[in-house]
């Protein structure tokens, strides 16, 4: 089975500025792929290349096995897209724009469209110039969700939505997932990505630095452990797999453990007679910050 999206060593240069250095990831059919990275990392540039708006400097990018640059029109028949900054024709109403967007994809306004308008609580009789950012996003979201597509691309789609609407958005994405659709979700809201995405790609300064499932990423990371034992914990602090050891007393401490060494550390701990133990797997935020800070540390050492 062909991959829905396949990006291989993609680069993009704007004059002297290298926006993308090396982006590589794939999206499998029926998968929700989370695309995260700090501001300016190149997420939107990657998406614009996928949409055929920008021409890649080098590397490959395909959707449904077709070239994103030369076969853009054929690809666009099978996708739906919501940009982060939605700008609408100021003198059309939201309702007119939704219908137009559907027609442009060769689709019709259905009962489902009405249902979505109601769910997102959108006043479609208002002219677009009077809409707030959130309302403009709702217009694009309603149009995208009521489009029957194979791949849905969301570029920070919820940045202007309130928590209630954010919840509606997540429900709709999960419904698409249940229906076997593929989804590319670029987002800053890590809880959203953590909840919905099967696999995640992290990029930083135009490079893919990690791609995989959240579980596999956790394996590469460290769990946090709070522990209280009967015997002193001093020996634990010296283990190679243990980091950031903070002793509250002789027998009580908090530290992080490399995921692959959790078993052996546990063995050592139980020999010290555990009174209380709490282990927290790393959240996506921890992972993200860790990758992010790594760069900061590297920069700092370079400057020294």
């Amino acid at each position: 089975m062909t991959e829905v999206v396949a990006i291989d060593h993609l680069t993009k240069r704007f004059g002297k500025f290298q926006a993308l250095k090396n982006i590589t990831f794939t999206i499998h059919p029926g998968e929700v792929f989370g695309f995260i990275g700090p501001n300016g990392a190149g997420k939107s540039t990657t998406i614009r290349i996928l949409l055929g708006n920008l021409k890649a400097t080098s590397g490959q990018a395909t959707i449904f096995g077709q070239s994103v640059w030369t076969d853009a029109v054929a690809i666009h028949k099978r996708i739906a897209y919501v940009p982060g900054d939605v700008d609408l024709w100021p003198n059309l109403t939201g309702g007119e724009i939704i219908d137009l967007l559907l027609k442009l994809s060769g689709q019709k306004h259905t009962a489902r469209t009405d249902e979505l308008i109601k769910k997102f609580d959108l006043d479609v009789a208002k002219k677009a110039r009077t809409y707030s950012k959130g309302n403009r996003q709702k217009v694009a979201l309603v149009a995208a969700f009521s489009t029957d597509a194979e791949l849905y691309i969301f570029d920070e789609p919820t940045s202007g939505l309130d928590p209630l609407m954010e919840e509606v958005f997540q429900q709709e994405v999960l419904a698409l997932k249940a229906a076997g659709k593929s989804i590319l979700l670029s987002s800053h809201i890590l809880s959203e990505v953590e909840r919905m995405c099967d696999r995640i790609g992290i990029i930083r300064q135009g490079e893919s630095i990690e791609v995989g499932s959240l579980a596999s990423m956790r394996k590469l990371s460290r769990s946090t452990i709070h522990v209280q034992t009967k015997q002193p914990l001093t020996a634990i602090a010296t283990l190679a797999a243990v980091h950031q050891f903070k002793a509250e007393s002789n027998t009580k401490a908090e530290f992080t453990v490399d995921s692959e060494a959790v078993g052996s550390v546990m063995d050592q701990l139980s020999s010290l007679e555990i009174v209380q133990l709490q282990s927290t797997p790393p959240t996506l935020e921890d992972l993200f910050l860790r990758y992010y800070n790594k760069e900061g540390e590297a920069d700092a050492t370079q400057h020294v």
Partner: peptide
């Protein structure tokens, strides 16, 4: 940015 949505549609 008015054409962003349009450009993701099957229109060359």
């Amino acid at each position: 940015g008015l054409l962003t949505l349009m450009q993701a549609k099957p229109i060359g």
